[in-house]
Simulated assay, not measured.
Amino acid sequence: MSENYSKLRQHAESAFGKAQSQLFERQRAIEDLNSIVIARNEKTQRLREARLAKELRDSLASGTKPASKRARKS
């Protein structure tokens, strides 16, 4: 009987190990995706600030009032 218990225990531990490794892989994938999203948002913000600064410089150089704000997409 203890041999059956041992086999069942080994099978259960093996299944648990597989589930844990899948969980860790999923968490790592989510962290990778989150870092990509954060990097993309930071780059978008830098580009937006650069564009607004350029538009302001151009409008001041031409002597006209600054361009109206662009509508934000939701």
Rank of each mutant, 00 (worst) to 15 (best):
S21V: 10
I36W: 03
T64L: 08
L52K: 01
E55D: 14
R72T: 14
R57Q: 13
L56Y: 02
S2A: 06
L52F: 01
E3L: 04
S68H: 06
A53S: 09
F16C: 02
R48Q: 06
K54I: 09
Q22L: 14
D32F: 10
Q45M: 11
S62T: 06
I38R: 15
A39C: 06
M1K: 08
E49P: 03
L60S: 10
S21I: 04
E42P: 01
S62E: 09
S68N: 04
N4D: 12
G63E: 00
K18H: 08
A29R: 13
Q45L: 15
V37S: 06
N41Y: 03
R57M: 12
R9E: 12
A15Y: 01
Q20V: 13
K65I: 11
A19I: 02
E3G: 02
K73D: 10
R72W: 06
E13L: 01
N4H: 03
S68I: 08
E42G: 10
G17M: 04
I36H: 04
A50K: 14
F16P: 01
Q27N: 15
M1F: 05
R26H: 12
A71E: 14
Q45G: 11
K54V: 12
R40A: 15
A50W: 09
E25M: 14
S6L: 14
Q45F: 05
S21L: 11
G17P: 02
